[in-house]
Design a protein around this nucleic acid. Structure first.
Lengths: 209, 209
DNA sequence: CCGCATTTGTAACTATTGTTACGATGGGTT
DNA sequence: AACCCATCGTAACAATAGTTACAAATGCGG
């Protein structure tokens, strides 16, 4: 399965869920492509990677498509995640309602800062990071989110991997490295900003020309 | 300039800045490639897109490289950004020290919620969103960050574009659309999680086999 | 029941991206 | 000064991704 497909599936899913809420039953590749900024033909080809269940002349049945994509991504069941770092970013993630709506539940929050340990964030009480391995093992949690200062990120990541975490989402500025068998996704706001900066200078060049 | 290069430059820059702090003077494509998970040859070719200034047998001079990349991305000067949404996520971004260190300054924070308007976040006082166009115009701000609930995202984005913002970084779950001449970058945490989920199921399949 | 508008699925093509391989070049060593 | 080793820059190749175009299928209206 091509990497690009995997990256687009979550976008399709998001839009489809929105459409279902709006009361739609079917959607064409043209419409869905417009809403996700994807070429309709490519969208159709993406979907053929896991079967062919559109109806010619009609489009795709939304509920079927949602089911299918959730099956591929493995988001049909709810996933428990652990969150490391109870700072502003950690709080933002923990109290983010969009998570539950899409099948994610924050099972526990950890921090090394003794001042933060014991405080509440939403329904959860921040626990000491030393308890992380036990919680991960007992609840068989496989997803971890890192929201700690850059210097601590790698150490936290190593500990998560050691504890059995299989997927790491890293929100710190430092890229972290993982052993084989663990997937990591580094999404640093500053990197995103720098990336967009390039387009800023380009649009200005165009305006000047 | 290929899209892929632009996406990798910020990673290079981050690692280079780190290396400079550690007291290094030069770095080889092999080393830098390892630290950024990029094939050394590709890294070299990426760099040739804007000149050739490595020394054979030695590597690249770190400070020169940093200068050059910052020049390309336009991050040699400081950039002011406006932030819309003073919730948890907005606070996280506003009080994020990594921004200043990398040349970004949050110039103003806006919200429509009258309860939040007037409160302080770091050095800044949250202002009413209606004042956004004036601030953007007066300070000639071109970058806007959206950290509001999904339903409000598109409206905020339209207003930002109208006010003269040229680059939008959208952290809400709803993808937003922009007029031509404005660049947008949607980075939704849930989408990232869903994306990593696929790899989770894959690693488990591998473990089972 | 038949043609028409619509929309899928896919084949062929193009463009882009990534990889491998190797000659060129600079510094260090004897 | 001559040799050697590390490393760059780049050409050739391979793989991937994206686009265009069109035939096959579906439902609808007359």
């Amino acid at each position: 399965m091509p990497e690009g497909v995997i990256e687009r599936l979550p976008s399709y899913l998001g839009v489809l869920i929105q459409l279902r809420q709006d009361g739609c039953y079917t959607v064409s590749s043209a419409k869905l492509g417009e809403l996700t900024d994807v070429n309709p033909a490519q969208l159709r080809r993406d979907l053929t990677h896991f079967g062919s269940f559109g109806k010619r002349g009609v489009g795709y049945e939304i509920v079927t498509l949602i089911d299918r994509i959730q099956g591929i991504l493995g988001s049909s069941q709810t996933h428990r995640i652990v969150l490391v770092g109870a700072g502003h970013l950690g709080s933002a993630i923990a109290s983010y309602h969009g998570l539950k709506a899409r099948g994610f539940v924050v099972a526990a929050i950890f921090d090394t800062d003794t001042v933060k340990v014991g405080t509440r964030i939403g329904d959860l009480v921040v626990q000491d990071f030393s308890k992380m391995p036990r919680v991960v093992a007992e609840q068989k949690i496989r997803i971890g989110v890192i929201a700690v200062p850059p210097d601590a990120a790698q150490a936290v990541c190593d500990a998560l991997a050691e504890a059995g975490i299989r997927v790491v989402l890293n929100y710190s500025t430092n890229m972290v490295r993982v052993p084989a068998g663990v997937a990591v996704h580094n999404t640093d706001p500053v990197r995103e900003l720098l990336h967009t900066l390039y387009y800023l200078s380009r649009t200005e060049d165009m305006a000047r020309a």
